[in-house]
Amino acid sequence: MTPLLIDTATLLRLQLERWELPEDELPRDSFVIESLVLYDWVILDGPSVAYNRQFLNWTADLDDGVEIFTPDAAERARLYRRIAEMFESVADSEIRPGAELLPVSELGGDDMPSYPWTMVIAELDRYPESGPVLSEIKNRVHGRAYRVAQLTTLATLMRLFHYLALQQTVGANLLLDRQKAPDQDVPRYGFTSSIMENFTGEVRARYAQRRRRWLGESVPELPVPALSRYVSSVAQERGWSLGRAVTWLREQPEVVSYRAGMTELVGRLQAGDAAGADEIFVELDGAAERWSARLGAPAARRRVPVTLALPLVEAMVPLPVPRLRRTPGEKLLLLIDVLLSTE
């Protein structure tokens, strides 16, 4: 799977140091939580994470699949040259006052409506490699009576160009803050959204049908995607922040298994192996049909009788035995089983 670069402003907006997100926020940003949990390889922007460490303490516990990337001097020079080229290509008429301002500061961590222009300049001044960007900014600003809103928009543009240039450097998909790019196509982990929505939706629909039949009442809608709801429930039950729940969940065997299953599914599709991909679809179809018979029905786990030698007693006890070789469909279903257990 291609890695995912996540804009720091998005992480700050989520405030994952909190213990829970309000229900009205979970649906809107659930794709970010989904990405943080499921992507094998996530890349974060090292300098802006460092500036905002007090708001991102949970990132210190992330596994090796999350890279906090800090470019060296040569990489910074290449980034700044690319940013300067992007600045040069933008016409003055496209830099307008009144543009959307970021709600948080990527470059300072203070509670401001946006990162200040002076901080952007101060950051650039720290590195001799930033000369091309500073020159281009001064060419734009010198002799013009830019209003504060325009200057802030320039700062926002610089951060946008920074992520676009960084994306090229690390070769990743890019998840930008929605106020930098409100119309972007959000990168998803494989076909997770479709699989989760279809599978859990079918199980819930059958449950709602039975409930109406027997009780004559409708079931409240559950608009929050299953994975985000599960992260929130783990945080509340364990007294953790949402960020800690995310870092814990990334390492759980069901999530690791899910990522492996998704990799196999994507690999079959990319190889044009329609028959191989259809085997997975058939398995998911069959599981959805079986699980629809009982909401949250657990995945079948093989058990064998084992004799335990205990002091003065010998007992035959059935113990679950892990299946070391699983089909791609089973690998996907392990996580879905866990998520449906919280319905």
Rank of each mutant, 00 (worst) to 15 (best):
T2N: 12
I6N: 02
I6D: 01
D7V: 06
T8A: 06
L12Q: 05
E23V: 15
E25Y: 09
L26Y: 02
R28N: 08
D29H: 14
E34W: 02
L36Q: 01
D40K: 10
I43Y: 00
D45E: 12
D45N: 14
V49S: 03
Y51G: 07
W58Y: 15
L62D: 00
P71N: 03
A77V: 05
R78D: 10
Y80V: 06
D92I: 13
S93Y: 00
S93I: 11
E94V: 14
E94A: 15
I95L: 11
G98N: 08
L101P: 04
D111T: 14
D111R: 11
D111N: 12
M112N: 10
P113G: 07
T118V: 14
L134A: 09
I137Y: 00
R140C: 06
R144E: 03
Y146C: 07
A149G: 14
Q150C: 13
L154W: 07
A155E: 00
T156A: 13
L157M: 13
M158H: 14
L164A: 07
A165P: 02
T169R: 06
V170I: 11
V170G: 05
L174A: 06
L175E: 00
L176Y: 01
R178M: 05
V186R: 06
R188T: 14
G190Q: 02
G190R: 03
E202G: 09
V203I: 13
R204C: 03
Q209I: 08
R210E: 05
R211T: 14
R213Y: 10
W214L: 13
W214G: 04
V219A: 04
P223K: 04
V224D: 01
L227S: 08
S232Q: 15
S233D: 08
A235K: 03
A235G: 10
W240E: 10
L242M: 15
V246F: 00
L249E: 02
Q252R: 13
E254M: 08
V255K: 01
A260L: 07
M262R: 04
M262I: 10
M262T: 08
E264Y: 02
R268Q: 08
L269C: 12
D273F: 11
D273L: 11
A274I: 14
A275C: 03
A275H: 08
G276Q: 04
E279G: 12
F281T: 11
L284W: 00
A287E: 06
E289D: 10
E289Y: 11
W291R: 13
L295K: 03
A299T: 10
A300G: 03
T307L: 12
A309M: 04
L310I: 09
P318S: 09
R323T: 13
R323A: 14
L332T: 03
L335H: 03
S341M: 03
